[in-house]
Design a protein around this nucleic acid. Structure first.
Lengths: 339, 339
DNA sequence: CTGAAAGCGCTAACAA
DNA sequence: TTGTTAGCGCTTTCAG
């Protein structure tokens, strides 16, 4: 089987304590002994058992990340930021896809707790459900007792570290842009109704409308699910319902891409007939035609900051980092057609 | 600090062995005792220490994945397949971005070995470097001795399980398609020269040319790096060099998207003036304009199969799974302009 | 500078 | 059915 520290010690003719000291190089060891130990290590292909070490030091060098789905570009970018810092700090990253299922999230937290991860980063909006939030709060407490940190990236429903982008202000800024261009009938493709991000961004839409004195029209609001397919269906629904609109603001870029595809399939030109806007500024936003006007959310930076918070001392006080969003003007928005 | 099994045992008035038996439910325990233990567990928020368990059972329930970068859609899709199976089998997945740096890959393997992962999946092509391959082979041996599996996803340079797509055949199929449409001057945007995937796909291009009796022209081959930016630069270089071509075949979709952007910036129409083809069929391929003709690589399935191989018995014999690729015709390829 | 020994939290014989 | 006990592989006092 695998060589252990005793094998190395025997081969080098020293005690296990000495081997440990050589490997952790935090104690004076004579050069000759050091050499002998290193040779034995190399010859045996020895790698210290992280579990045995974790048992003693109660720190695993691992950080857990729970998110909707890594293959969603929004989360992929966040993870990129997380990995960047993890690599710098020699940490391993465990990634868990929750698929936005509350039970799955809680189960993952427990698995990660079992592994005594140094911290857990939960990315993405949270589900608006009291039982879930209570369970989450309970887990946060346990995590704390365990000496590991909880970092929320993109939401902030429980006492913990958090990194949050300004979704509401970003949403309002975007809709204001649409209004400035002359749009009054602005459809909105929302995310899943029970998600905080959906609410925050929708609020921005409503705020902008309100401060311009435009009455919101419920029939202009369609429900998507943050996917391309969801966006496509939402647009199709809007079109089928026959409601008039000159612009569509989608809750995220993926949905906006779906809207674009639907409008194209129906023979509508963007932005000549209808303007379309997204949210997030994921890489695909600039590669669709027309390139998407959107709100840039600093996803990579959110990931970096989250990981930085995660790696602080377990006793450091909670911190809340607010990040700004920014309007990115491209080609998918123009003045409404002068019908 | 954290509650341990002794705390639970004391609180439930039983021995630690009993607690263990209740939690692992693989031994007869009287119902009354079971209840008492469960109550104690709940009250203390107890979660068994995975490290202590791993030390005994020498299995961690964790699988490591080493890949270029999770935020690259090709890898993101593979990871989706991996996670799908991992969730089904209650495994945790550690993801490591190697950025294609050989040293980083080896270091990650050692970190994962230290954590006694049940298996390591290495995704993506391998670097063509003898020293690196020797080191990799050595690690594969150690992994084997350790009782954990090594699965290669997308390459096969060392003795191990592997899941490989048919890159060469796919590349040839695509170029044949271009030839059938009447193209003769077909430029090629390759990946990094020292990568196996680059070689495999380029070979397909050359094979197709050869079997049609078209002499390959080195000046038609540009080097990219599998990124959008690399594709853009490669196309710009081709254009600047003034070589004539009526089609561009890119080594992957991301590069093809860059080629598309470059051609657009230069005022060239696709496919009217130049045809463009990609490789992989990542999600963005159908959302660019014109939608990309490409070769579908079953990335999600590659991920699933890799994970399935990873979770087999450590002593099971190596297996090699070959997966087919398939031509996907969209709008970016047409007959060459009849100049 | 080096070794002996205790013990981290758990599971798996072995007893009872 | 339940308890006792011996480690898993390592780090860390405490001696020397």
């Amino acid at each position: 089987m695998t060589a252990n520290i005793t094998d190395v010690a025997r081969r080098a003719g020293v005690s296990t304590a000495t081997v440990s000291r050589v490997l952790n190089r935090n104690y004076p060891v004579s050069e000759g002994v050091r050499q002998r130990v290193m040779v034995a290590v190399r010859e045996l292909g020895y790698v210290a058992n992280a579990h045995a070490r974790a048992l003693l030091t109660s720190t695993s060098g691992t950080v857990g990340v729970i998110l909707h789905d890594v293959s969603d570009p929004y989360f992929a970018e966040i993870v990129r930021g997380i990995q960047e810092v993890a690599a710098l700090e020699d940490r391993l990253v465990v990634i868990c896809n929750s698929l936005r299922e509350p039970q799955r999230e809680i189960t993952y937290i427990e698995m990660l707790r079992a592994h005594r991860v140094d911290a857990i980063i939960m990315a993405g909006g949270h589900i608006l459900d009291d039982r879930y939030l209570a369970a989450l709060r309970e887990q946060a407490l346990q995590l704390d007792a365990q000496g590991s940190r909880l970092v929320l990236c993109g939401r902030h429903p429980v006492r913990a570290d958090a990194v949050v982008p300004d979704n509401t202000a970003g949403g309002a800024r975007l809709v204001r842009h649409l209004l400035e261009r002359g749009h009054r009938r602005i459809a909105y493709v929302a995310g899943p109704p029970n998600l905080s991000t959906t609410q925050d961004r929708l609020e921005g839409y409503l705020d902008a409308l309100a401060s311009s004195g435009v009455a919101p029209d419920p029939s202009l609001i369609a429900i998507g699910d943050f996917t391309r397919e969801g966006g496509y269906q939402a647009a199709a629904g809007l079109l089928a319902a026959g409601v008039a609109f000159t612009a569509v603001s989608a809750a995220n870029d993926l949905a906006a891409v779906g809207v674009l595809a639907c409008l194209r399939d129906r023979g509508l030109r963007v932005p000549a007939d209808v303007s379309v806007a997204g949210f997030d500024d994921v890489p695909v936003a600039r590669d669709v035609t027309p390139a998407l006007t959107t709100v840039r959310v600093p996803m990579v930076e959110m990931g970096r900051r989250s990981m930085r918070l995660a790696l602080r001392d377990p006793n450091a006080p909670h911190e809340l980092v607010r990040l700004h969003t920014e309007l990115v003007e491209r080609q998918s928005v123009a003045a409404p057609p002068t019908a």
